[in-house]
Write a protein that binds this DNA or RNA. Structure first.
Lengths: 205, 205
DNA sequence: AAACAATACGAACGATCGTACTATTTGTTT
DNA sequence: AAACAAATAGTACGATCGTTCGTATTGTTT
């Protein structure tokens, strides 16, 4: 029963998986999910290629596991803190500012993991693209729902289309992430200003 | 003198370069500049690896030439048609709508070449990233300058920061490009609406 | 026709890729 | 202590990578 928890063999395996995936998300955020070579990963972690891939089966399974690991980090870093605040415009603000920090603080060394990976696989059908499309859709929908909650709280003009506003706001975030990586140091201020003005224009209170 | 123009040997080489780069931009827009393997390219074009790479020297030179070729296509497809209209808000509209068509018509099979390539190399220092950063900066600046011209023409509120507006507009474009590739069919309408509303809010006439 | 120049080809190089298979080590159960 | 199970390692495979070298082909010049 609870041997699942205490079995040292499985614990050892779980620990290895965590270490591998922790390195994998960092590598992939810079060099992409294709740049995730098994040999390189094994070399950097000083473990054997065969021992590493045995945890995942195939490279594609490793890539999918890396996406899931990145999603968990994103939820912990950006989503969960915002959800601690009750629904409304304050939660919306926390969500957006949390994302800007997640990008500018380089939680992943290559900036937003999903911006990197989504562009890499957007035009390549398959399970990896599908997984990334779902996560992107989840993210935009979370913003839209948070907008809708702020409308219900009477803080945002109820005639505004939440999906449209969510599109704009997420677009500002992604643009800041990319252009920051390309060397534009002022772009996070730009994005913050655009978000603030865009929200202020539809705010009631 | 004009043997440069008529020399059949050089013309043959130029033709080969054009064929190679025409295929290279398409391949790279889907599989990235890293996915541009010399062997694959040679195989698809039915020429020899050695004959192909002889035109460029190294793979990195091939990648840089591919970026230049994509830039030329972009200028022809998006920029040049807009520049046929005199400066002002109409030119701005043509520029933005031209970009949306460039993306939605899949001028490159993988959507916007530069969105794909920029995200691929944004976190990887070197000449490729530098070239892409310059092109991105040129594009955003072109939008900003066009905005400024519309201000001088009295069509847009002169108190608006052109760079800030250009940031917003380019962000809408990039978001539409990515999410369209990820399967969202409504996103070009979304982007068009956001651009129209954003511009309308600062328009004078 | 002969000499020359540019392009294209074919073969091979060392390196790395993902994967499969067989030990070996580590931890648990009886 | 013996039997078992899971994780890890070692080795090798065919394929592909970018690059180099020598040669053949194609076009121009004299």
């Amino acid at each position: 029963m609870d041997q699942q928890v205490t079995d040292g063999r499985i614990r050892r395996g779980d620990q290895t998986r965590r270490v591998v995936l922790s390195k994998a998300v960092d590598v992939a955020s810079v060099d992409g999910l294709d740049g995730l070579s098994i040999g390189r990963l094994a070399g950097e972690l000083d473990i054997s290629k065969s021992g590493l891939i045995a945890h995942f089966g195939t490279k594609e399974e490793l890539q999918l596991a890396t996406i899931r690991a990145a999603r968990a980090i994103f939820v912990t870093t950006v989503v969960a803190p915002a959800l601690e605040t009750p629904p409304g415009s304050k939660r919306l603000r926390l969500l957006l500012e949390g994302w800007l920090a997640y990008s500018s603080d380089r939680r992943f060394p290559g900036g937003c993991f999903f911006a990197r990976a989504s562009h890499e696989y957007a035009a390549r059908p398959g399970p990896i693209r599908d997984a990334l499309a779902v996560i992107d859709e989840e993210w935009v929908r979370l913003i839209a729902e948070t907008v809708a909650e702020a409308q219900e709280a009477g803080e945002i003009d109820p005639t505004v289309d939440p999906a449209q506003l969510a599109f704009d706001l997420s677009a500002f975030l992604d643009a800041a992430n990319l252009r920051s990586l390309l060397g534009d140091d002022s772009v996070y201020d730009r994005a913050y200003r655009s978000m603030r003005d865009r929200i202020a224009a539809v705010s009631l209170s």
